[in-house]
Amino acid sequence: MTDSLILSILADGAFAAVAATGFAVISNPPKKAILIAAGLAAVGHALRFYLLHNTVLDITTASLAAAFAIGLISMLAAKLIHCPAEVFSFPSLLPMVPGMYAYKTVLATIRFMSSHGTGDPQELIVQICQNGLTTIFVMFALVIGVSLPMFIFHKQSFMMTRLLNNKRPA
């Protein structure tokens, strides 16, 4: 790996961390969860960036791998701070949610419907399908990736918040 590649991966992770923090605070997470969400988002997004730019993987598979990594680390983190894992694994997925593909699908549909439409209708149909399918598949990849570790460690994932109470003096 060249230095510039490492640098751009690190920058990608750092900006993803800021993005995750901002999108997380909208849903008022516990304060200790915000930092972990930022860290997880950095790892996940940087991993996806690396896979997208340096391997043959497409955005769906890369998202699946990134979400799986987030899911694994969030299980460990949940054990450490005794919070349900989704409290920080969901916010860390938010920068990877395919929002732009989603609204581009709608924009292409609007343009296809308008009679004085600019652009070739066949090209627009391709855009609608491409953006729409990417949205759906990436969303499924994110959710399946992040919940695979929870299926693997099924029992532990229920117990995360219980440990909180075992620590409390009786």
Binding site: A24, I26, S27, N28, P29, P30, A33, H82, C83, P84, E86, V87, F90, P91, T161, R162, L164, N165, N166, A170
Partner: peptide, 21 residues
């Protein structure tokens, strides 16, 4: 309502407290 992950986390551990204690 508006989303509130803090409530989720705390109510979830409240349910374990009910169960254990």
């Amino acid at each position: 309502g508006t989303f509130n992950f803090n409530t989720i986390s705390q109510l979830s551990s409240l349910s374990w407290a009910a169960n254990d204690e």
